[in-house]
């Protein structure tokens, strides 16, 4: 009976592997396609390719703007993280650890703003970016994404769980409020910081609508739009032009890599350090 609920390791493995296979197949197909001769990508959609080659990578990285697109995306994502994580965690700290007038209403309004879909805020966003002279700079994308409500919400959830005694004790020892945030709260919510950072990085990496209206020149496009740019040419050729599917599969495969690196970093830096029960207080 006990085993039924907490299944033994074999069952856990079976479940995890099965789920893994289901999730992995499309990615495997993408990755393997990027190594197929460009003419085979569409005409031979099989999972076990007849021929493998590096020609798509050579072509995409040397003769197309794919490296440039990836660089632009990296700038946006890293910039968002660098500005966004401090800013949202500080706000989350305030919402979680202090009592102040209008706190709950303010937080409710923040959450309510999520209920308005991006599409209708697009024109106002463009107007604001233009007023501030940000159009066609990475900041037009980075800054709006840095004030992200969902990561703030997630961080607040973690911060709320910390025992108040911890902070009181520190205060009595003479610690300033910023030190409470920086030296006590943040280290204790490292899994939360990792998860929020991942969420932020992912959102920025895949951002599509904002760059669409903010970016004015092809050289500043992020990879999400860059792939679309190639895809439009695919549409033109309806699937076979070698100059198209090669860069798309290569670009899509390569654009996954930084996100995976980000996830692994998060695992190492944020989650792993905690398993020793550091949070117990």
């Amino acid at each position: 009976m006990r085993r039924l609920v907490a299944p033994d390791l074999v069952l856990v493995y079976a479940f995890l592997v099965l789920m893994g296979v289901v999730t992995l197949i499309p990615f495997y197909w993408l990755a393997i396609s990027s190594f197929k001769p460009a003419s085979d990508i569409v005409s031979d959609p099989s999972l076990i390719p007849a021929r493998l080659t590096l020609e798509n990578y050579v072509y995409a990285l040397t003769e197309t703007p794919v490296p440039r697109f990836l660089l632009n995306t990296a700038v946006i994502a890293v910039g968002t993280l660098l500005i966004g994580l401090p800013v949202t965690s500080m706000a989350a700290f305030a919402f979680a650890r202090y009592h102040f007038r209008g706190r709950d209403v303010l937080f409710g309004l923040l959450l309510a703003s999520l209920a308005i879909p991006d599409y209708v805020t697009l024109i106002p966003s463009f107007v604001v970016a233009r007023l501030l002279g940000l159009v066609n700079t990475p900041f037009a994308v980075i800054i709006p994404l840095a004030a992200a409500v969902l990561p703030l919400f997630l961080l607040r959830q973690y911060l709320k769980q910390l025992p108040e005694e911890l902070f009181d004790a520190a205060r009595i020892d003479g610690a300033g409020e910023f030190r409470l945030y920086w030296q006590i709260a943040l280290p204790l919510i490292r899994p939360g910081l990792g998860a929020a950072g991942l969420l932020m990085f992912l959102t920025a990496w895949n951002a599509y609508l904002l760059p669409l209206v903010m970016v004015r020149t092809r050289d500043n496009l992020p990879i999400s739009l860059g792939l679309q740019y190639f895809y439009s040419s695919v549409a033109a050729a309806s699937g076979t032009d070698r100059s198209v599917w090669g860069p798309i599969t290569v670009g899509a495969t390569l654009s996954v890599v930084p996100l995976i690196v980000c996830l692994i970093l998060m695992q190492r830096q944020f989650i792993a350090g905690l398993t020793s029960g550091a949070v117990k207080q």
């Binding site: 697009l122 024109i123 004015r216 092809r218 739009l225 439009s232």
Partner: peptide, 22 residues
């Protein structure tokens, strides 16, 4: 030349037309 693919152009153009900029 600004080439975004026919579909994205539509969204971009609407924003530009609505705000009368760029």
């Amino acid at each position: 030349l600004v080439d975004f693919g026919g579909n994205d152009l539509q969204e971009k153009l609407l924003v530009a037309l609505a705000t009368q900029t760029d």
